[in-house]
Design a protein around this nucleic acid. Structure first.
Lengths: 197, 197
DNA sequence: ACACAAAGTGACCGATCGTGCTCTTTCGTT
DNA sequence: AACGAAAGAGCACGATCGGTCACTTTGTGT
């Protein structure tokens, strides 16, 4: 039962890459099969259907995100250290591992946000958990902790800068995007951690 | 030569809607034809090929954006009034006209950002013009006008909040997204229009 | 080592894709 | 009213899509 899991994860990895490039619906079973050196029918020994593979793709992308962005930050002391690490890693993970295709989670979000169904629900639920985790760390930026509303406002801006960075860098070709995002986030951190009035 | 143009714009309108939903590549010629009450071959009297229609879709989406978001703001006095109007209309245009499908320009951006070619170039160029226009208005927030770098940093955050709003509202189902975006933008405006030190 | 399940192949199916072709209807111009 | 051009219909094509089936190869547990 080992060979199977290995090739399955190779398939899913390739499918995630293609999904980030052309969207989930644009992933061709034949192309994925050829890219991993299999026949089309060979793929169907690992997935019941195309939708089954879609589910695996969404899961794998989120797992990878959690392990690359969240997990290393969670190993740091709570509060500011974690928040900063999350942002730094979040910013970079699109540029390193996904430099040629763009962040798969962003692509999935835009594609699924207007397609109600179990896939969107699953994606939303896992992103919601991430958001809750990060928001909790943001609350610790001050002592006593920030109110929920303030922490959520800060998270909104934090994620906005991530999205803005991806747009500026990938769509507009702005080579300063990383600096802009980092500067905006740093200022946000300063504003948030200092007392309001 | 009138009937033709009328149906052509009906076709393009429908194609833009479907492109916002399923992506450019996901727009089926048959579906568009059926939706506007035509036969598939009837479509080909208006477009040379599918890529020709893609081009028309991108053009139409940008034209619509310019007329809905930029044009009314450009009629206002320069500076703060224009900037505020652009943001307000930008925020709303995704929720009103495109409430069921999401902003087509955002969908096109995410889809085309990793697909080099004339389509991406065209989209990038027109978005760049919009960005330049808005940035120029931002510079007028202060007297003497802001430096380019500061105005661009403000634009980066402004667009980030737009993107963040779309993500929060459409993907995460956050009903407070509009308030969050508006509040973040207002604070940004305050920070930017007051003297730095 | 042997047997059985898992992994993988190749041929094939019906549906749909984008795109030509010929033919008819409808419109705009004089 | 009439005529040429534009608009649109109907059909058929090759390619590709997701998916099935019977078969062979490979791996694995005992």
């Amino acid at each position: 039962m080992k060979k199977g899991e290995a090739t399955k994860s190779r398939i899913v990895d390739e499918a995630v890459r293609q999904a980030a490039l052309r969207g989930l619906a644009g992933v061709s079973l034949s192309d994925v099969a050829e890219a991993v050196g299999l026949s089309k029918s060979g793929l169907f020994k690992h997935f019941e259907s195309k939708e089954d593979m879609h589910r695996a793709v969404v899961e794998a992308a989120l797992d990878h995100f959690r392990e690359t962005v969240w997990a290393p930050a969670a190993a740091l002391p709570p509060g500011r250290a974690r928040v900063e690490e999350v942002f730094r890693r979040w910013l970079h993970w699109g540029e390193t591992r996904w430099s040629a295709s763009g962040c798969p989670i962003m692509a999935l979000s835009v594609e699924l946000d207007d397609q109600p169904g179990p896939l969107k629900d699953y994606l939303q639920q896992r992103l919601q958990r991430f958001r809750t985790n990060v928001t909790n760390e943001i609350r610790l930026l001050r002592d006593p902790p920030l109110a929920d509303a303030e922490a959520q406002a800060a998270y909104f801006q934090m994620k906005s800068f991530i999205l803005g960075h991806a747009d500026a860098r990938r769509m507009m070709g702005d080579t300063d995007a990383e600096r802009s995002a980092a500067a905006a986030f740093e200022a946000l951190l300063e504003r948030t951690s200092k007392v309001a009035a």
